[in-house]
Design a protein around this nucleic acid. Structure first.
Lengths: 367, 367
DNA sequence: CTGAAAGCGCTTACAG
DNA sequence: CTGAAAGCGCTTACAG
């Protein structure tokens, strides 16, 4: 017993070679093949052998060498996430860290790893997917920030990778989609503002090439239309800088200055808040603003920010789960998360009685 | 030629099996071993053979299978990053995405991958390092957020992993350190404030268990001491929530209310700004505040935030480079990055003539 | 300079 | 239920 303990310790130390299934087989007095069967609890191993094998493995402190396992099973036991946004934009947006934390909760339990690549948008992106696949480092990917006519859908297929998309692509896709109904959040935002008396609302949107930005924009315009109110949209790249510029643009147009601005993410809303304040406007007295994603800081600015909340971590966890199921060839369906919901805070309030030098709000223009 | 093209295409398609060095050897008319030598440009291959092998490989579209390479070389060709902070804190802090982008620039060119794990602080952390090492998924790790008496130093050694630390541990460490002199930034901040007439400055610090937080705090206290001014420190967990609470605490103490607050990161400074504004104070007229890390949002809040800038992406790139050199058994030295520097913006200004109901500022208390 | 062989640590038919 | 063997795609001594 003492001898065995010493053996165990020697083997698990940094210096000693790690035990392999050959060592386990020797100790258990069986063949390597049987050890493999027992360890992967496949049928066809007698209870007696299984016990001997398992305790031998435990005693030696054996753990599988993923490299060997990968080579023989042709599986990486890892999934990839390629983030293709400008560094400052992803840095300013808490989405990815939160999302990855969610992904991780699912992976760690399943013995899978997350391989992360961040690239600047463009050609480099395709090469990154390609080399991840060619190097056989991953079994599948989570496709985020879906774009119009996203060429990644075809690429991933060619590369023989599994995938799950965040939201539905606008083209045929062989991959399951995990979606959140963020349109509901946008609609609720517009409804909320209209209820507060706003009749001229602007939207600071993300790039129209990104599907979710375009979707939010459409939802915004539909909702505004349904209420028969004036709506304008300014497109940005999601950065605080462009959010600020868009706000300056909107507020500068004194003739048609909106009384409320709906931003497509929180960082832009923070920047917009600052622009408004700098221009001498009081938020929400003169201008109401809303964000999207309900980031941590939303409740820590002044005035606190009304924002649309989505459970980003859950999204990550479910996307990972669906992807793993796909890789395991289990049947999976598209899954929908609970819709995004509006969290109202101080940054939205009643529309100003007479919004500065703005002409009287239109009462009904169409439908 | 046409036939060969067809062959090439068949092989590179998703359906066909990928070419292996055996295929390359056959086409080049040499042995597998020689192919391996040529492909890894080792000496001892005739120019003629090398050419034939290389063009055969190119023709077949061969690329190395990392799994096989890993198994035989006992290298993962990947490094790990384990982030052990509460999800909301890492999400609010742009440090990690920026850092990882920097790491990535170095890795992609070197054919290395980044394996990311995010864990909630605690026991889970050690297990994560352990399984990453036991699964042989990585060759080394970048140790961030060094703690006092950091048990990871010993753990990583036991696990046989290479490592690089961000900053110098407070214990003996066999690993190279890549450091940034953030004390310089703190000192510059205090100097700046003192120059503006502030005599009562508070510091909202990160957790003292984290070495860089403690180091910034010491630098703050040293600088305050050097100027002979009143200095207080409140410790937090780096979150906006605790940053706000600390600010409330500091401002609530009307008798000794500081005229300036130095925050140990930007998110806390943003939260502190909001608390001050909510309390009816004008920043910077009544209160000056400064942040740390000069995040994107710093110039997009109102008033814009004076903050300490460090080149986080460069830090990531250099840390990765040093780690790869270590893994390759190349000699490496500790490296120091350019010191952090203060970026002054609107949030700092002259100390108020008479800081509310505060007693007259002490003129000289000691040295 | 080159070939034939063994080995990395697993998994998986194939026989019994 | 179990063993012996081949194979995953590389690398690396060992002979010539």
């Amino acid at each position: 017993m003492t001898e065995r303990d010493a053996e165990t310790q020697r083997r698990s130390g940094a210096g000693g070679a790690r035990p392999t299934i050959a060592d386990v087989a020797r100790l258990a007095g069986v063949s390597k093949g049987l050890v493999s069967f027992a360890l992967n609890d496949r049928p066809g191993v007698s209870a007696d052998s299984r016990d001997r094998i398992l305790s031998a493995a435990a005693e030696l402190g054996w753990s599988p060498n993923m490299r060997a396992r990968s080579l023989s099973t042709n599986r990486a036991f890892a999934i990839g996430l390629v983030i293709a946004r400008e560094p400052d934009i992803v840095a300013a947006d808490p989405f990815f860290p939160t999302f990855m934390a969610g992904v991780e909760t699912e992976l760690s339990g399943a013995g899978q790893a997350l391989v992360l690549a961040t690239v600047t948008p463009g050609r480099q992106e395709a090469d990154t997917y390609r080399s991840l696949a060619l190097d056989k480092r991953i079994d599948g990917v989570i496709l985020t920030d879906l774009r119009a006519d996203d060429e990644r859908i075809a690429l991933i297929g060619e590369l023989g990778l599994a995938a799950v998309t965040l939201g539905h692509p606008d083209t045929d896709s062989p991959f399951p989609a995990v979606s959140i109904d963020d349109e509901a959040g946008v609609t609720a935002t517009v409804d909320h503002l209209v209820q507060l008396g706003h009749r001229s609302i602007a939207h600071v949107a993300g790039p129209s090439s990104m599907l979710h930005a375009a979707r939010r924009r459409r939802a915004f315009e539909r909702a505004a239309d349904a209420h028969g109110i004036t709506a304008r949209t300014v497109e940005t790249d999601f950065s605080a800088t462009e959010g600020a510029a868009a706000t300056r643009h909107l507020l500068g147009d004194v003739a048609e200055r909106p009384t409320a601005i709906v931003y497509s993410n929180d960082p832009m809303a923070f920047a917009g808040l600052a622009v408004a304040q700098r221009a001498g406007l009081s938020v929400p007295r003169d201008l109401s603003i809303t964000g999207f994603d309900n980031t941590d800081l939303a409740e820590h600015v002044y005035p606190s920010l009304t924002s649309v909340a989505t459970d980003v971590a859950a999204w990550g966890a479910i996307a990972a789960r669906v992807l793993l199921a796909t890789i395991a060839s289990e049947p999976v369906d598209n899954t929908d998360l609970p819709p995004a919901r509006l969290v109202t805070r101080e940054s939205t309030s009643h529309a100003p009685a007479s919004p500065a030098p703005t002409p009287p709000a239109p009462t009904k223009n169409g439908r």
